[in-house]
């Protein structure tokens, strides 16, 4: 039976000593957070995943509801990812492509709601992870945040520590690249 409480209420309950509230919260977010990290740092995903949750545990005493829990959680995950990149001698921004200099993002999206869509979707599901891995890290991150957390652009911007327009541009170019990549993979088969 699922807990009817909101994420924020569960986190507040855990802060006050309710261990079962954390179990419920963990059950809701474990898969999404794991995927968010796995698609960006697959080689150390377990380590990062555990660190993020331990940071959540450690930060419980100071937790206040100033934003949605997902924003807070993914902000912690983003910071941990930055630490990982720094430890490897590079930053996420260094790896980023400048979307404004990249003309491929201007391409229009294909029509996915046509009858052959089912077949195309199956194909797309097979290829999208390849295309996602080929994205610049900043675009990869905003796409994963949008897909896994269900956050709005403002929340994605806050969680990733950038302005709203920057987050919007990154996401738009990420979508364009994914479409183009998928179209290219379909054409090669």
């Amino acid at each position: 039976m699922t807990d009817p409480r909101t994420d924020e209420a569960l986190m507040l309950a855990y802060r006050d000593g309710d261990a079962a509230a954390f179990d419920a919260l963990y059950g809701r977010w474990r898969g999404r957070l794991y995927r968010y990290l796995a698609h960006q740092a697959a080689e150390v995903v377990d380590e990062l995943f555990q660190d993020v949750w331990l940071r959540v545990v450690g930060a419980r005493t100071g937790y206040e509801v100033t934003a949605r829990f997902s924003t807070w959680l993914f902000r912690i995950a983003h910071n941990r990812l930055m630490d990982h990149y720094r430890a490897r001698g590079r930053s996420l921004v260094d790896l980023a492509d400048d979307p404004e200099d990249n003309p491929i993002g201007r391409q229009a999206a294909p029509e996915w709601d046509t009858p052959p869509a089912m077949l195309e979707r199956r194909e797309a599901a097979r290829h999208i992870l390849v295309c996602l891995a080929a994205l610049p890290p900043t675009q990869q991150e905003v796409f994963l945040m949008a897909e896994e957390s269900g956050m709005s652009l403002d929340e994605i911007a806050r969680a990733s520590g950038v302005g709203r327009e920057t987050a919007k541009s990154r996401l738009r170019y990420a979508l364009d690249r994914l479409r183009r990549c998928l179209a290219g993979l379909r054409g090669t088969e």
Binding site: Y14, A19, F22, D23, Y26, R30, G31, Y34, R35, A38, A42, V45, D46, F49, Q50, W53, L54, V57, A109, P110, W112, D113, A117, R121, R122, A124, A125, R126, H127, I128, L129, L132, E147, L175, L178, R179, L182
Partner: peptide, 28 residues
């Protein structure tokens, strides 16, 4: 993009192991 979102959801994704879950829940 609903189509991309659908493709992403349909794709196989990794999941945390039960041992990892147990470690985190115990720590919590």
């Amino acid at each position: 993009d609903p189509n991309l979102s659908q493709a992403y959801r349909d794709a196989p994704h990794p999941e945390p192991s039960s041992a990892l879950d147990a470690r985190i829940l115990n720590a919590a």
